[in-house]
Amino acid sequence: MKIARFHVADGPTRLGRVDGDRITDISDVPGVGTSLRAILPHLATLEEAIQASDGESLALDAVVLEAPIDDPQKYLGIGMNYKEHAEEARQAGIPTPTSQLWFNKQVSCVVGPHDPIRKPEVSDELDYEIELGVVIGKRCKNVSVEDARSVIAGYVVANDVSVRDWLMKLSPTFTLGKSFDTHGPIGPWLTTDDEIVDPLALRMQLTVNGEVRQDWTTDDMIYDVYEQIAYLTQVMTLMPGDILATGTPAGIGAPTGRFLKVGDVVRAEIEGLGAIENLVVAEP
């Protein structure tokens, strides 16, 4: 299934089932409501009713898509997790880690798939990072690599927008440089895990104003999504709706100084998951 959060004009948020170029309102299905995070642990039991729903059907281009998970308890990202990207990061002055390197993106950065990205007044080093976003579906701790897929609800396209000078010079923990408001666009919807044959074999492409900047596949990860979940759950309990940004491939702006500017349009697309597209605007 593909499940989106959406609204029409200035109307309330609803949940919808996405089929092709249309979306069907499922908010009135018993047990569904309007919070995708709340129903993640129950998706298996709700699936039949969701698939059978004959709620209002709308064209996708007639609605406004919102962040599929707008209220995660945690948004975590892993650094330098693609082989070629680790090398370009090294060239940009970021040492290659010898183990999984995790950081927080504060959840206040999350925005929808077509919301604007603000360029901060305090930096001219605004960068992009296409990433496969993994959404956790159940409370879990000490998960083995072999069982890790069983705790995944589904996937989103993520752009781990980064402010490089705050990341490196002013905030060496990465958190501040990863957490500016609007720097966590995700979407366009949640694609449930059962729809994806192999999340480690998906093509991902990011363009800026139509120019391809990143074009890679998820099989180049150093630590795959299952190893990431196993590693993290040794430390913390992951909760339904938690988002893991699983790394970005080569092609970021930092090594060449090709940072984002006001007016740029950034499009990130992952095979089977759809695309998000965001306009860079000046900070108000």
Rank of each mutant, 00 (worst) to 15 (best):
I69F: 09
S53K: 04
A44E: 14
D242H: 08
I130K: 08
D71Q: 14
Q205G: 00
F174K: 04
A38P: 05
V262S: 06
A92D: 01
L190P: 08
P30K: 08
V18H: 07
F259M: 07
P72H: 14
P116L: 09
S27W: 12
A44M: 04
K169A: 14
T218V: 00
T182Q: 07
V161F: 11
I78T: 13
G253S: 02
V134T: 12
L101H: 13
P95M: 01
G177T: 07
Q228I: 15
E129L: 09
N81Y: 05
G11M: 12
E283L: 10
K105V: 11
T233H: 05
V18T: 13
S162F: 06
I229C: 07
A245M: 15
E56M: 07
L190H: 08
S99C: 03
D181P: 02
G247F: 02
A59D: 14
L40P: 05
Q205K: 15
P199D: 10
I23A: 09
T218L: 08
A254W: 13
M221H: 10
A92F: 00
S171I: 03
P255R: 03
W216N: 11
R203H: 15
W216C: 06
E269D: 12
I39M: 11
A62Y: 01
E84G: 00
E195D: 12
H42Y: 15
R164N: 07
S171F: 11
V29A: 08
T237I: 13
E84P: 00
P72V: 08
A9N: 15
D21F: 06
